[in-house]
């Protein structure tokens, strides 16, 4: 395929000299198969070494390169230039976050909200404190939360959420999905703790299902679904109609439960 020239309209912002962001246009030589991230690298190598963005893995795993590309929050490494346009592409930082510089958003507010929802297994005899066995979990119980574990914390859902655009207190799709991921985990006993966060101001009931988080999620995590299932659980619990199952039991050692016979852990490679 002949080489094409595509105009990249990139948001630039240097807090030390720019009063506000502005758009700078670069003409990028594009080959078949080039991603938007490749295009940004091409700009940095050939046109403007001062352009700044955040990236790491280049394969849609780390979630660092979330950007607003042609008006849609998505991963730059996961987006082919020629699938979008053969003439013009706009690239900006994720909305609803402060801009540190150029295409780099400050994701700290998202991670603070994430930490606030207790994104970990809460159970008195947790493996961390008493490592004598494992919890038994059936494939069906795993399926109840597996989809929500694929979240890579890229922030695309937070950039797409219209409620978050006006309400800074709203936890947002990513933290609430993490909350539901642990609520739906059969090993967990922390529903009451998380329900206080989820039903407070800025919790799950601020979501009114615009569906954008689910649409833009590059990993198919479907935060919209997680939040609606969370709300269902909160309402049923409030009405005392929730199915109060006991958390899954702990296996008492090799041979107990459905472990394979004669299964032992490999010898330690690091001396104690």
């Amino acid at each position: 395929m002949a080489e094409l020239k595509v105009n990249f309209h990139v948001t630039r912002y240097n807090p030390e000299k720019d009063p506000k962001p502005y758009i700078q246009t670069y003409s990028v030589a594009v080959n078949d198969g080039m991603t938007v991230l490749d295009g940004l690298h091409w700009i940095k190598e050939n046109l403007d070494p001062t352009l700044v963005w955040r990236y790491s893995c280049r394969m849609g795993i780390c979630g660092s390169c979330g950007m607003l590309i042609n008006g849609t929050p998505t991963l730059a490494c996961n987006t082919q230039i020629l699938h979008l346009s053969q003439t013009d592409i706009t690239v900006g930082p994720l909305p609803n976050f402060e801009i540190i510089r150029d295409l780099v958003p400050d994701l700290l507010s998202m991670f603070e909200k994430h930490a606030a929802v207790h994104p970990n297994i809460i159970r008195p005899e947790a493996e961390l404190t008493d490592r004598t066995g494992e919890f038994y979990q059936s494939p069906e119980e795993l399926e109840a939360y597996l989809q929500f574990t694929y979240c890579i914390k890229c922030g695309c859902c937070m950039g797409a959420c219209p409620t978050l655009a006006t309400d800074v207190r709203y936890l947002g799709p990513m933290p609430l999905t993490a909350l539901q991921r642990y609520n739906a985990d059969s090993r967990d006993e922390g529903f009451k703790v998380r329900a206080q966060v989820a039903s407070a101001d800025g919790g799950a009931f601020r979501c009114h299902y615009a569906g954008e988080c689910s649409r833009v999620c590059p990993k198919g995590v479907d935060p919209g679904k997680a939040i609606q299932l969370l709300k269902r659980k909160l309402v049923l619990d409030y009405l005392h109609l929730a199915n109060r199952k006991k958390p899954c039991p702990k296996l008492e050692g090799p041979g107990h439960g459905k472990l394979l016979p004669n299964m032992t852990a490999p010898p330690r490679t690091i001396p104690e």
Binding site: P15, K20, P21, P93, L94, P162
Partner: peptide
């Protein structure tokens, strides 16, 4: 200094 990139009502 940082630029507040919150969309506001435009986000709706």
């Amino acid at each position: 200094t940082r630029h507040n990139n919150r969309l506001g009502v435009w986000g709706w």
